[in-house]
Simulated assay, not measured.
Amino acid sequence: MRKRSIKNTRVNAEVQHELTNIIQRGIKDPRVSQWTSVVAAVVAPDLKTAKAYVSVLGDAKVKEDTIIGLKSAEGYIRRELAKSLNMRNTPEITFILDESIEYGVEMSKKIDEVNKDLHYEDENDA
């Protein structure tokens, strides 16, 4: 059981790395934002399916267009993935928008604002 999870972790990391390269260098679709990164890839143990979590910098329209562009380029992406990875099966990829990075940035801004307000109040009390 332990070997399986180590292998799966390695496969996930390799797929994530290759997907990032393919999206950054190979996709010419104007709908796919240049600010797209693959945050994680989760490949099923049977290697037939994979979920690719992508982060896209931009507004809702840019994010939506990028996901549509990635879905339309799925055949090309799978072919490129098959060329770069030596796997028995090339997984069918589902692209999922991951907004955790933007959420983290937004929360960080809010924390900074609160800290700035607290610091300002401390100076006025002195």
Rank of each mutant, 00 (worst) to 15 (best):
R31M: 01
I93Q: 00
A44P: 08
W35R: 13
N115C: 04
P45G: 02
V62N: 05
Q24K: 12
Y53A: 04
S84E: 10
W35M: 13
A41N: 05
I23H: 06
L85T: 10
D98H: 12
L81H: 07
V42T: 09
E92V: 03
I67G: 00
K7G: 03
K61A: 15
K61V: 15
R4W: 07
E123I: 10
E102Q: 15
L85G: 04
N124M: 15
S84W: 04
N89C: 05
I27C: 03
D117S: 08
V56F: 06
E74F: 00
D125L: 13
P45D: 02
A40T: 11
E64Y: 09
A126W: 05
M107V: 15
A126M: 07
V105W: 10
A44I: 11
N8L: 14
V38K: 05
I96V: 14
G58P: 07
I67D: 00
V32Q: 04
D125K: 14
E64L: 10
G26C: 11
E92C: 01
D112S: 07
K7C: 02
E121T: 05
R2E: 14
S55Y: 12
K61R: 13
K3D: 10
D46V: 03
V15S: 08
V56E: 05
K110V: 11
V114L: 09
E14P: 01
V42H: 04
T20P: 07
G26I: 11
T66L: 00
E80Y: 07
R79M: 04
D122G: 03
I6Q: 09
E64F: 09
N8Y: 06
S100K: 15
W35D: 11
D117T: 07
Y103I: 14
V43I: 01
S100H: 13
D112E: 08
M87H: 06
K116M: 05
L70H: 03
V15C: 09
